[in-house]
Simulated scan of single mutants.
Amino acid sequence: MSVLVGIVLGSDSDLPLMKDAVKTLEKFGISYELSISSAHRAPDKTAAYARTAESRGLKVIIAAAGLAAHLPGVLAAHTVLPVIGVPVKSGALDGVDALYSIAQMPPGIPVASVAINGAKNAAILAAQIIALSDDTVRQKLHRFKEELAGEVEAKDARLKELGVDGYLSVKQ
């Protein structure tokens, strides 16, 4: 089975956050690879990764970056594959700078962005992209959405049963 998703970290400090993406891809049975690269400290490595991603069989790239967050955009500049940026909460602006850097790409170089620290959603979005041509992943996504709805229904029933104070006391 070929690797379908590349997860690129701007730093090893992003690994605890991106573990959520790894777990989510594993839940959907989607193969992935992890790499550490840097748009600033290893620009040649980063460009080479993006340029070879398609020929290596990747379908989507997820890139985590904090602060100026150039990694997702640099990867997107060197590939036609979809790139999903995960802004990392860090620095004086708590990730808002990273969110803006990822979302405000120039015309012709799109990068999808999820919420600050939204690694799980990045993996779900990658799964949805892959599901366009993979019925197995599509069915797993349908089940996932049904599970989400079931969780809401269970919480609603419990709230009705316990009332506000009872629900909150059990929840804590």
Rank of each mutant, 00 (worst) to 15 (best):
I129R: 01
K155A: 12
G85Y: 11
V88E: 13
A115H: 09
D134E: 07
D135V: 11
V170K: 10
P110Q: 14
L132K: 12
E147W: 01
D134T: 03
D134W: 00
K45W: 11
I7M: 06
S169C: 00
D44M: 05
K59M: 14
Q172S: 13
K89I: 00
A39N: 08
A39Q: 08
I116T: 07
S31I: 05
A76K: 07
V114D: 05
N117E: 01
S113K: 02
A68D: 14
V5Y: 04
H70I: 10
Q128S: 12
V74H: 04
Q172G: 09
E54G: 05
A112H: 07
L17Y: 01
V114L: 05
R143C: 06
I102V: 14
T52E: 13
P110D: 13
V152F: 02
D97Y: 07
K19R: 15
N121H: 11
D135Q: 10
Q139F: 07
E151H: 10
A68R: 12
R158G: 00
E153C: 00
H142P: 00
A131I: 09
A98H: 02
L132H: 08
L81C: 02
A63H: 12
A154V: 07
A122G: 08
T136Q: 12
A69V: 06
G91P: 06
L67D: 04
P43T: 11
D135F: 02
A92C: 08
K27H: 14
L141W: 01
V164A: 10
L4H: 13
D97K: 06
V88L: 09
L162H: 03
A103W: 02
H142F: 12
E33D: 12
V3K: 15
D12V: 11
A92R: 15
A47P: 05
S90V: 15
S2L: 06
D44S: 04
S90A: 15
Y49R: 00
R158Y: 06
V60D: 08
F144K: 04
T24M: 14
G150N: 15
K171E: 11
V88I: 15
A50K: 09
R158H: 08
S113V: 15
D134H: 05
K59C: 06
L93N: 05
L17P: 02
Y32T: 12
L71F: 06
A64C: 12
T136V: 15
S90G: 14
F28I: 11
V80F: 13
I61E: 09
F28W: 04
I102R: 05
G73K: 07
V111I: 10
A126W: 02
D12G: 14
S2V: 04
V137A: 03
A126E: 11
H78N: 15
F144Y: 15
V74M: 14
E26R: 09
V5K: 04
N121T: 04
A92M: 14
P72M: 12
A42M: 10
R158F: 02
S169A: 12
L67V: 09
L148R: 13
I109N: 08
S38Q: 13
V5S: 07
